[in-house]
Structure formats: structure tokens, C-alpha cells
Design a binder for these strands. Structure first.
Length: 222
DNA sequence: CCCCAGGCCGCGC
DNA sequence: GCGCGGCATGGG
């Protein structure tokens, strides 16, 4: 990786942070867990499943339902009948699959401390955890430096730097061009998503874009 | 009516 | 290994 590319990547981060501010990912409710004796990291794992290919708004509705049922925890998920869990999770969409995934995860990530040590490969063996969800769990719940890549991330680095690749390729590209800083990874991923939603849409709004000088689009990259 | 959302699985090739 | 259909609700 050439030096100028690293500098441009770091500069992209600094500018996005300045323009959009800290994004507060992953949102959790510490007070809920204090009162119920659960661990906030459990909420991250549950939220990671619920938001798969689903707007955060809809995932949040399911999370609120779980809260009201006192079931926003791995234990809560395990103890609810599948049918009842399905009703609560329904607003997040794909609810039959997500019920199966949640029950699987609630069983295999118990106790939640396993997120500190578990291998990525072991996470993949859990039904419902693919590459992105694994990295979300490792980064936001486990506090481990795995860079989370999603479709927004792919779009932005392709347009901005002309870098194209599959999931693992792009994850390694980020990790190879940034220091292994958990807080940096957390914030950068969140900022890329925010930028993709506000500006770097399918049809991008390049006029007045805050990172226009760093970006090869539209003059350079597709 | 359409497309999209903080993906993953199982299948065919 | 890659591409594709299915999965489901809510918003624009």
C-alpha cells in the first residue's frame, strides 16, 4: 500500500469526523442492563442480528419490544417461546430467520465474555453470523480491531480511492492502512455509513461534498 | 407501482 | 469460488 493512500484514508476519517461528529455506534441502553442484571454487550449482539439487511429504525422497534418484555438479553432470548419471540422481533423483518439466529447465538455466545476470545472462524459456524455480523460482534462487543465492511463502505472506497474487492480483501485493506485502534475502527465505520446515507448515495450528491478534494469521483473513478 | 434498508443461507454452476 | 433467489417489515 502506498504512503499517500494511507494519508488520504486517514484524512478522510478526520474530515468525516469533523463534519458529521461522533456517531455513537453501537447505541445501547446501560440503564436497562443495570436494572436487569444483563451485559450491554448482549444488546450489541442482538442488535447485530436484528439489523441485518434492515433499517436501524426497524431493528430498534424490535429492540424496544424486547425491552418491554424484559428480554433484551441472551438469557431473555433463550427463555422466551419461539412464537412469542417472533412477535417481538417482527418489525425487524425476516423474523422467522432472525428468531432462529437469535436463539442460536444466545446459546453459543454464553457467557457473553466469549466475545473477548472467540475466533472469527468459530463465529462463522454459528448460523446467522456471516462476515459482517462477526466483525460487528468482534469490534463493538469484543473490543477487538476488526474493521467492519458493508455495502456502503465498498461504495465509498471504490469511488474515493478506486479500490474494489470482496469483503475480506477490503477488510484487510483497511486494517493494513490504519493502526489497529478499536475506537478508530468503530467511529470510522459509523462515519462511512453516515456519509453514504447523506451524500455518497447510489446517485451521489457531490455538489458541496465535504471530502470532494480527496475523492476521485466523478472525474476519476466510477 | 417501484426501490431500499447497518446480510445470511442454501443452492447451482 | 461466485451469483442468485428467498427471507419480511416499514418508509420514501
Amino acid at each position: 500500500m502506498d504512503r499517500s493512500l494511507r494519508e488520504r484514508l486517514t484524512e478522510l476519517y478526520r474530515r468525516l469526523l469533523r463534519v458529521y461528529g461522533p456517531q455513537n455506534w453501537w447505541p445501547i441502553d446501560p440503564e436497562y442492563h443495570r436494572r436487569h442484571g444483563s451485559d450491554p454487550r448482549e444488546e450489541i449482539v442482538i442488535g447485530a442480528i436484528l439489523t441485518q439487511n434492515t433499517s436501524w429504525r426497524n431493528a430498534e422497534r424490535a429492540i424496544e419490544n424486547l425491552k418491554r418484555a424484559g428480554a433484551l438479553s441472551l438469557k431473555g432470548v433463550r427463555e422466551l417461546p419461539a412464537e412469542r419471540l417472533g412477535e417481538l422481533v417482527k418489525p425487524a423483518g425476516f423474523f422467522r430467520r432472525k428468531v432462529a439466529y437469535l436463539r442460536e447465538v444466545a446459546q453459543k455466545l454464553d457467557p457473553i465474555d466469549v466475545v473477548e476470545k472467540i475466533d472469527r472462524e468459530q463465529l462463522f459456524r454459528i448460523r446467522g453470523i456471516g462476515r459482517e455480523t462477526a466483525d460487528v460482534i468482534l469490534l463493538y462487543a469484543g473490543g477487538r480491531p476488526f474493521f467492519v465492511v458493508d455495502s456502503y463502505t465498498k461504495r465509498i472506497v471504490f469511488r474515493t480511492f478506486g479500490v474494489k474487492g470482496g469483503y475480506e480483501e477490503l477488510r484487510r485493506w483497511f486494517e493494513g492502512n490504519l493502526p489497529p485502534d478499536v475506537e478508530l475502527y468503530r467511529e470510522f465505520h459509523a462515519l462511512l455509513d453516515e456519509h453514504a446515507k447523506r451524500r455518497c448515495l447510489r446517485n451521489p450528491l457531490c455538489g458541496g461534498c465535504p471530502v470532494e478534494e480527496l475523492c476521485g469521483f466523478p472525474s476519476g473513478n466510477p
